[in-house]
Amino acid sequence: MSASAFGFSLGKAVSSQRRRARFAESMWGLGTVVFVLLLWEILSRTGMLPTIAFPSASDVLLRLVSLLASATFWTAVGNTLSAAAIGLVIVLVIGLPFGMAIGRSRWVERSTLLTFEFLKPIPPVALLPLVLLFWGPSLTMKVFLVTMGALWPFMVQVVYGARELDSTQLDLARSYRLSRWRTIRQIFLPTLLPFGMTGMRVAASIAVIVAVVAELIGGATGMGQEIAMAQNSADLPTMYAYIFATGLLGLAINGVFNLISKPLLFWHPSQRTKEH
């Protein structure tokens, strides 16, 4: 047998085996989800779960389906998402130049070190009462809180990215006399992009968390407020359905990030799939 034929047949056998294994694994995962839902249903129907805290699984899922067809639901989703999105845009606009400056200039880095290191670990929700005081349960309040929460994780990544810009690459750009625009587009951006994406991913999940808190406790409109309202009227299926919906929203946001990182970062080690 020739070596190439051998390599080929090995690769084929292994990959089909792997595909089968992956399929089996996803079946296992699906099975667990179905099992948990069934167990929940049985336990709540037979009264083994305290009815004061648990509606039945089918009630929750049916309510979720009917919510998906209601305008209230999508308005709430829109309110939560828009606050998170506006906050993230502000984070991008502030975080990018500041992160770059800190990563590239020692003067800026040393000057801001103590201030930022003190501000960073402060939980964003600690500011909730203050911003409620200033703006009441409004979009501004939510956006401010989201920005305060999501700024640091994004900026930290930009700083890492800016430090990664190594002088060899910059020397290369200078020696080939690349224009400023091309240097930015072909060297700065590709280096920063993976870091920026990581930062945005973390920032986005924090943004949703902070927005939900602002709604749940601060009383701004959105999914968090719907959860609080359902809780106040003891409408457990709706409350659970909204909690589930926040989870689905989180999954969707993660999915979007996966989708856009593939084409944007195809060259980056994190995206390379090994050829066997």
Binding site: F6, S9, L10, A13, V14, Q17
Partner: peptide, 10 residues
């Protein structure tokens, strides 16, 4: 003694 090892068909 007579050691053989294959992965699938390989």
């Amino acid at each position: 003694e007579g050691l053989r090892k294959s992965y699938g068909e390989a």
